[in-house]
């Protein structure tokens, strides 16, 4: 066994001194033995992992940056500041911010309800919340069209409301439609992050606060929130990442380039145009999304790091 290990040590390019001179001693110490025995498996796994990561993630992303800058910084800036791009960025940000606000609020309510109360139908509700995870986003978008589109059953209701309010809000092929679709696909993120944390926490501390005379809102602010704040922030970040990148659901309800297109749709449109210029532009706009993604990734790391100490 030991001989074998020593040989392997040499093959793996360990220093000859360790292999020969050290003999028993060199491999006798605990650490050396451990890594010696398990040596090949972790190295293989790491190699596979790194390779996969490089091929599937890093190279394509580098490619995006490279392609976007291929025609020089000027054409990159032109692409990024093009009217359609700015409009798409605006729509993306509007949809993401509203989706975040709405989902944070409803996510909190849902997790509060599911973890602190007992009621009939609790499990059904818990499953319903996950629907956006299991349904293809395109179907979600189409469902909105079926409901709120020209032929949809809810359209007369929306028109009625518009009449009363004197507004002209349309829920499909418009920014509200994009917002709705984004909310739909990002709905479970916050509650799914919160539920395990709140479940683990139980409701003992809340009950203690009740017995000390605290009201609901005080209990939430002073007892519940400090425990869930990092999980909540983490959920919000995941939610944001998904909101920025959503394609399918938004694609179904958004058809007007420069008006209701989000960044992913704009990129798709540029790419599909097919000319060499527009493809470069598509990559340039993509780099915006990559930048957003990297920012989110860094935030996520910070939150995870902070959350560890506080959970």
């Amino acid at each position: 066994m030991r001989e074998e290990m020593r040989d392997r040590g040499r093959q793996d390019g360990l220093s000859p001194k360790q292999g020969e001179g050290g003999g028993e001693m060199a491999f006798g110490n605990g650490d050396g033995q451990k890594s010696g025995q398990k040596g090949i498996v972790p190295i293989l796994l790491i190699a596979v992992g790194v390779l996969f990561f490089l091929v599937m993630l890093v190279l394509p992303l580098v490619e995006v940056i490279y392609r976007s800058l291929k025609d020089g910084l000027e054409s990159y800036m032109n692409a990024v500041t093009a009217e359609n791009t700015i409009a798409a960025l605006k729509v993306t940000l509007i949809a993401a911010v509203i989706a975040l606000a709405v989902n944070t609020f409803f996510g909190l309510c849902a997790s509060w309800l599911l973890t602190k109360f007992e009621f009939p139908g609790k499990h059904v509700l818990s499953v319903l919340i996950d629907i956006p995870f299991s349904i293809s986003p395109v179907i979600a978008g189409l469902a909105y069209i079926m409901t709120f589109g020209r032929m949809g059953w809810a359209t007369p209701i929306v028109e009625q409301i518009n009449e009363w309010l004197g507004t002209d809000i349309s829920l499909v092929f418009s920014i509200p439609g994009v917002v709705l679709a984004t909310i739909f696909v990002t709905f479970p993120f916050v509650s799914r992050e919160l539920i395990p944390v709140m479940q683990a926490q139980g409701s003992k501390e809340e009950e203690a606060a009740v017995m000390l005379g605290a009201r609901g809102l005080t209990i939430f602010r002073k007892v519940t929130f400090p425990h869930i704040k990092w999980a909540l922030l983490y959920g919000i970040i995941l939610c944001a990442a998904r909101a920025f990148g959503e394609f399918g659901a938004v694609y179904a309800v958004s058809k007007a380039r420069g008006k209701t297109f989000t960044l992913p749709l704009e990129i798709d449109a540029l790419y599909m145009a097919g000319s060499a210029d527009s493809i470069t532009q598509a990559f340039a706009v993509s780099s915006l999304l990559v930048a957003l993604a990297i920012i989110i990734l860094i935030l996520k790391q910070i939150v995870e790091y902070c959350g560890k100490d506080n959970r």
Partner: peptide
Amino acid sequence: FQNYALFR
């Protein structure tokens, strides 16, 4: 409370 439920 059992296990005290102190505010951690």
